[in-house]
Design a protein around this nucleic acid. Structure first.
Lengths: 216, 216
DNA sequence: CCACAGCTGGAACGTCTGTTCTGGTACTAT
DNA sequence: ATAGTACCAGAACAGACGTTCCAGCTGTGG
């Protein structure tokens, strides 16, 4: 089997262009016109060759039944995970959206697309995103407007950044979490702010920060 | 004009399913069979209704000339872009990989997958990634080990974070860039470090920071 | 020279497919 | 009751489309 001929290369290019432009594949006669090929049989011949080489896939007897395959294909959504942007989290401000439970990305107002690397091996249902408001985490390199990707968690290790629900104040904040006996220290990552102490029974960890993303 | 009827909702669902399954749109008779509709004219009728509502778009007289539109469409951002991780950039250390020119993601040793949001509307050829070594950018909220996504650029505005090639030292550093007359100030974002001054002719901007990503 | 494989041109065939026409039902407002 | 609107059923038409057949053109190896 030879390499892809010049004509086959042109067809492949045309396929890509046509697909991005129309969102459906070209007919054989579209290819014929688009690549200046004289006959439909020549197109068919070359399409069969391309299929034999595994570069495309065809559904017979079906109009426009051509798919790009493998390398040629536009990368798919399999690699991206859409997580709900459930709200904004601030530095001890009243929480806007406390319900981080089972939010379906399909119904969230806003979502953030992440790649598989960025969520690690975590299950997508355990992941959500928050927009950071305020500068209380500035020393932890998280600034106003950043997006933090959270993993749902009931507990975190000391020193991890966590979203913590303070029950009596009914607010959620993003802080470093330290357990100190029967109370916890919530440490803002900003040198100008003092730590906050609460009874251990009064706080509930909601999630830990997995990734931080900042657009410049 | 009424809301989408039950039948139209079924058609929309079928369209989505068919598209993800086949990579080309269904014919009217495919829809007819898939949605248990009795006549092609009914399908056509409802497709026209859907088009009038702006939910789909049709190309007349063209087989399978149906596109999903807007909300219904698979969002662009679900596509991932693989950018080459061309090397490590440090705080004034000798540069490891100065050749950020035309690196083909297919041949890079390591790549980073990003979503379309994360690179904005930029062209994929203009984007590459660097791993940050050292803490010279700590005050700009970029830490050792972070990944910065760069956009190739020959010039940046004052105050933008840029990868700058210092010619006589033959090194590349990541700094905030300020033009001051015929010299430039390269400002490390770390309070413990002093700015560096160079003749404007001795420095060359290679790119600007687009996004910073940190895994915890 | 011939044989053969790879490829091209042109045309025709039969099916696939979008479109349209006619007629019908159900519901609402006048 | 009448008119109007929204929707459905069936059939038929015309063009789009994949497929196939055949003749011809190239280059290569005997």
């Amino acid at each position: 089997m030879k390499r892809r001929s010049d004509k086959q290369e042109r067809i492949l290019d045309f396929l890509r262009d046509f697909l991005t432009q129309h969102d459906y594949p070209p007919s054989i006669r579209d290819i014929q016109a688009g690549c200046s090929i004289s006959s439909t049989s020549v197109v068919d011949y070359n399409l069969k060759a391309l299929e034999a080489k595994g570069l495309i896939q065809r559904d017979r007897e079906i109009s426009r039944g051509i798919k790009l395959v493998g390398e040629e294909r536009r990368p798919e959504s399999e690699y991206t995970i859409r997580v709900p942007l459930v709200g904004t989290i601030a530095a001890g401000q009243p929480l806007p959206v406390p319900t981080t439970e089972g939010v379906d990305p399909d119904f969230a107002d806003e979502t953030v697309a992440l790649t598989a690397d960025q969520v690690g091996g975590r299950h997508r249902d355990e992941i959500y995103a928050l927009r950071v408001k305020g500068t209380s985490m500035i020393d932890a390199l998280i600034n106003d407007g950043d997006i933090v990707v959270m993993e749902r968690a009931q507990a975190v290790r000391d020193g991890e950044m966590a979203a913590v629900w303070v029950k009596d104040a009914n607010e959620v904040t993003l802080k470093k979490f330290y357990r100190e006996g029967d109370r916890v220290r919530l440490q803002p990552m900003n040198a100008t702010m003092d730590p906050i102490y609460h009874a251990a029974s009064n706080v509930q960890v909601q999630g830990r920060v997995v990734t931080a993303i900042r657009a410049m």
